[in-house]
Amino acid sequence: MKKIKVLILRTAGTNCDYETQSAFELCGAVVERVHINTLVEEKDKIFEYDILTFPGGFTYGDDVASGKILSNEIKNKLGYEVKKYALSGRPIIGICNGFQVLVKMGLLPDPELFKQISTLSYNDSGRFECCWVYLKTEKKIGSESSCIWTKNLPDVISLPVAHGEGKFISESKDFFEDLNKNNQIVFRYSSKDGGEPEYPLVSNGSTERIAGICNKKGNIFGLMPHPERYVFALQHPAKEGFNSKYGWGKVIFQNAVDFAGQ
């Protein structure tokens, strides 16, 4: 079987690259952590990989605003290649800081537009918070979310979050209507049974409690929670998981590896 190759794009301040690598490796992929300077030198190298990952961290210290400097850098130095990659339908994931980067360069929600039309702003709680949350996996009656990353997940899963700027907002109301209409909302913060959560289960004040979205096609996925921190049951606060061994985060990476292998 063909080995799936994953590119984890890193730069100064990236800090979730190793656990993201482990998560993909656990799903049978071959992973390379590549510094942006290396990729900029050889831009076409990006097309050698089946999956592109923007991991969590504090790129450039989150100075100015989270993910801002990196998203500018990518747009200016790799914009053409990244857009082409995105439109090719290959899986792309942005986790936490990676999600902030995707949104701020405009690869989400619409890679064709490739323009920032939404943002991840300061949490309503006013501070960085690290805790576990429940996430409702959005499934429309009749039509499941088109997101290729979240197949085979139960209605509600839990994952850890750790961010200070995770409030997903936009200027226009239509924006959210479109997201809903196009099944682009992937995860919402929820209570244990999928209902309305209370603080601290939701601390950032996201519109419609959005925790993760995808593009219309479903190959590009961005989320604030950290699936790579829950690939083993052991990582759960009460050591819960599936097959008495794995955490639900693993399914997310497995989906992409399987998709890329098809």
Binding site: E19, S22, H236
Partner: peptide, 17 residues
């Protein structure tokens, strides 16, 4: 939780809360 390796955590419970 960063690095994903903290399996006995500073705050504990029987679920995620």
């Amino acid at each position: 939780e960063v690095q994903g390796q903290t399996i006995i955590k500073p705050l504990q419970g029987n679920n995620i809360e």
